[in-house]
């Protein structure tokens, strides 16, 4: 048995071969052990990662999706990691980027939700219940605060939901730099290149999103997840899909598979795809 705790729970050399530290410039932690004091304990690069999260607004809510894969470099490390998270009654937060930072965020969000529940029980004043905009504001402040300490949480987040008082759909983005924005459709990572063009075709403005039906929005998201699975090597077929609707609440399915794939195009691809030899 290997007695160094560092290697516990890690892919074994016997199974996967010697880990190559040159990939993604990963530090050799064994050597860091001996080098002793003041080495950097901030996240300077993501290690286990989740790929794109995509979302679009429609008439009465938001559709959001992310696959269930956590990658370790090019290794498909964990295949049952959910990256969409329900917070409060009408919010779903989708998280891409470093998975351990994501889990840290989840403990924070859990606390946030718990505190809010305590303030809402029969013994206390009924304070506001958590709205998507509150959760977003909290997370955006946290992300900017951490980047300003040069100790970022290596994630891009999409907060989606409906305001339970006004019934208005909510969709906003924030990343490790604290950069935030709202848009009728939002995607992180590869999704911003591959899914956004498809989603903007459905709704390029708030006015157009307010005309979009749930079926149209859902199809747009499903098609986008398919394209992402075709072209993003770090994506998986199995994904989670959440619909947050002002009338029907949250419908969350953590076991959706990409359907009706056609890989016919693949046989024609040679080299970078432009040559026909």
């Amino acid at each position: 048995m290997n007695h160094d705790p560092y290697s516990w729970g890690r892919p074994s050399d016997a199974m996967y071969g010697q880990y190559n530290n040159a990939i993604a410039n990963a530090p050799n932690t064994l050597e860091h052990h001996s080098s002793g004091s003041n080495f950097n304990e901030n996240t300077t690069r993501p290690i286990v990662t989740g790929t794109s999260v995509i979302a679009i607004k429609y008439k009465t809510g938001v559709v959001i999706a992310a696959d269930n894969l956590a990658s370790y470099g090019s290794l498909l490390r964990f295949q049952g990691i959910e990256r969409l998270h329900k917070v409060g009654k009408t919010t779903v937060v989708g998280i891409s980027g470093d998975v351990s930072d994501m889990q840290h965020l989840l403990t924070i969000l859990d606390q946030l939700e718990m505190e809010n529940n305590y303030d809402n029980d029969e013994y206390s004043d009924n304070v506001d219940e958590l709205q998507p905009s509150y959760i977003f504001e909290y997370l955006a402040n946290l992300m900017y605060h951490r980047r300003s300490k040069m100790n970022p949480l290596w994630n891009a987040l999409i907060v989606s939901g409906v305001d339970s008082k006004t019934g208005k759909p909510f969709l906003e983005y924030v990343n490790l730099l604290g950069v935030k924005y709202a848009s009728p459709s939002i995607a992180t990572g590869f999704g911003s290149h591959l899914a956004i063009p498809l989603l903007r075709k459905l709704a390029d403005s708030e006015e157009e999103a307010a005309e979009l039906t749930l079926e149209q929005a859902k199809k747009g998201i499903k098609d986008s997840m398919k394209v992402l699975f075709y072209r993003d090597t770090r994506s998986s077929k199995n994904y989670s899909l959440a619909v947050i609707d002002k009338d029907t609440g949250i419908a969350y399915d953590n076991n959706v598979d990409v359907e009706d794939m056609s890989w016919k195009f693949a046989k024609d691809i040679t080299g970078y795809g432009t040559q026909r030899v």
Partner: peptide
């Protein structure tokens, strides 16, 4: 640099240009 004697400095860039 891979042999750890001189850790590679990978600096987090806290800025971006948003045009």
């Amino acid at each position: 640099p891979q042999h750890g004697s001189q850790p590679i400095q990978h600096q987090f860039n806290p800025y971006s240009d948003n045009g």
